[in-house]
Computed example of a mutant assay.
Amino acid sequence: MVNPVSTNDPTLPHDQPDPNAVHLVVLTGMSGGGKTVALRALEDLEFYCVDNLPSGLLPQLVQSVRQDGGGRRRRIAVGVDVRNRGEDFEHMPLVLSELADAGVHVHLVFIDCRDDVLIKRFSETRRRHPLARRGVSLADAIAEERRLLRPLVGIAEKVIDSSDLNVHQLRRMIATGYAAATEGLTLMFQSFAFRRGLPLDSDFVFDARCLPNPHWQPKLRPLSGKDAPVRDFLEADPMVSEYFADTARWLDAWLPRFEQDDRSYVTISVGCTGGRHRSVYLVERLSRHFRAKREGVLTFHRELE
């Protein structure tokens, strides 16, 4: 049987990774709470992600992964919300218990949020609540959703309250919590603008303000470091390639020391003045460099997202 403990502690479990184990993360919770953000964070960790899968199909999905997948394909994340049929929520506890008995590492995560915050989020985004029908208020739809999800929140391994979290904080919380399900060290490369302050969660910070600035090129100013014209501009200057090579060489030499120290997650931040061009370019290039060598490489552009 699954014996999860519901808690508001946002720290997620760090089990020792087993390369042969199947990890199944079931993400559920209130609409507008951040389930999609959490699912994308796990997708960045190379989980095989499926949204809105009926509970009855979970055993078939796990069995398919066991037969055909290896390594990273043994990590599955499934999103479940009120778009599923009502009986799914009643059957889910039994399905998850049977999967756990079969040796699957099951993690049920419920993302909650205060009603007043949910109402504000729906109002600001002008999204329609999935249970909102003609004549049904948003507050009543949220109350009905809580009633439908009650069987899941009661057995959740973790309950995360996203009321006071922005999307970046929630994404990082999920990514750091399940980095241990990946093999080896998980790397987060993030770009930022120095004028908006240093990211407080950085393990290493690199300053790219010495490089030529595309901002001063009128045609490049509205673009970002992800765009080909900006890449071409930067790569035309040998100093940019030298900066990248020196940074990659240093990280190649020292990151293995962190793995030997049983670290599961390291954040490398690259900053420039506006956080749109030079830092974004370098983060994208560094991410590609390390993805060719390892799993669990994430990217985050603070000023673009």
Rank of each mutant, 00 (worst) to 15 (best):
M188R: 09
G225Y: 11
T267K: 05
G177E: 01
R249G: 13
L211K: 05
G275D: 15
G177L: 02
H277G: 12
L255C: 10
D252H: 15
Q190N: 13
I174M: 08
T267S: 08
E242F: 10
T247D: 10
W250P: 01
I174Y: 04
R276I: 12
L255N: 08
H277R: 01
A248H: 05
Y281L: 14
P214M: 14
R278Q: 01
A236K: 08
V240M: 15
L211N: 08
F206Q: 05
L255G: 02
L211G: 04
L251G: 01
L223S: 08
G184F: 12
R196G: 14
P238I: 10
F233G: 12
C272Y: 02
T186G: 00
S279G: 00
P238N: 04
R285P: 00
R276C: 03
T186W: 06
G177N: 04
D252C: 13
G184S: 06
M173D: 10
T273N: 03
E284F: 01
D203G: 14
A208K: 06
T182A: 09
W250K: 13
V283G: 08
R195Y: 09
G177Y: 01
Q260W: 06
R263H: 04
R196E: 07
V283Q: 05
V280A: 01
R263W: 04
T273M: 07
T273F: 05
L223M: 05
D207W: 08
S264E: 13
N213H: 04
G177W: 03
F194W: 10
D203Q: 13
F194A: 06
F206C: 02
R221E: 06
W250C: 10
I268P: 00
P229L: 12
L211H: 04
F233W: 14
N213S: 00
A179S: 06
L187F: 07
L282M: 07
F258D: 05
C210W: 15
V266G: 02
A181N: 14
C210T: 15
K226R: 12
E183W: 05
S269E: 02
W250S: 09
G197V: 04
